[in-house]
């Protein structure tokens, strides 16, 4: 199976030949790969060198935490890559963005109003959790859509708080 894995600006062509053989950009590596039970901590021996990393699923990507450095990797098989190429550039800047609670907590203030124009980085909501007031910011410019919570509300993790259109 062949994959194109992108980390930052770099693309790696990774071919998984069998359980122990991986070819990266034409160079063959002898690999022994295993996870610690069902944990996201993985151990890998690459030509005898031992590595350990966390691999977390994120939206559309995987995050690899290796020796104190976080790498965000996009893994696509060749078919996906071709599909994406033909679809043209992505449309991430369009559509509605839903601000979700990154953790359970208490809504302290909502400094924006429905219909208000916001810039990228503007504070949309302040959520208190673990005795800290956390500013949740807008990832892009737009207009505030429906605000679903008010100060004093307790919210669950991943609960939708408001949207930016």
């Amino acid at each position: 199976m062949k994959y194109v894995t992108t980390i930052g600006e770099r693309e790696f062509l990774v071919e998984i030949v069998d359980d122990n053989t991986v070819i990266v950009d034409g160079v063959t590596f002898l690999v022994d790969f295993d996870s610690a039970g069902s944990q996201p901590v993985y151990s890998m021996l690459v030509d005898g060198r031992s590595y350990e990393a966390y691999v977390y699923p994120a939206e559309d990507s995987l995050q690899v935490l290796l020796h104190g450095t976080l790498y965000t990797a996009n893994v696509e098989d060749e078919r996906e890559k071709r599909l994406r190429a033909s679809a043209g550039s992505r449309v991430a800047e369009r559509g509605e963005y839903y601000l979700k609670a990154p953790m359970p907590g208490l809504v302290v203030t909502v400094p924006v109003k429905e219909g208000q124009a916001v810039e990228r980085g503007d504070v949309l909501l302040i959520l208190e959790s673990m005795k800290m007031q956390n500013e949740l910011k807008s990832p892009r410019a737009g207009k505030v859509g429906r605000v679903r919570v008010k100060p004093g509300d307790s919210v669950e993790q991943r609960q939708t708080l408001l949207s930016v259109v």
Binding site: M1, T5, I7, R10
Partner: peptide
């Protein structure tokens, strides 16, 4: 922006990510 000279291993990270994705598929 990690300090210069710090061992960066993107190719190892790429193998990790690909193997995990492959397993899931």
């Amino acid at each position: 922006a990690p300090e210069e000279g710090r061992g960066s291993r993107p190719e190892i990270a790429a193998i990790f990510a690909t193997l995990v994705a492959h397993r899931e598929t």
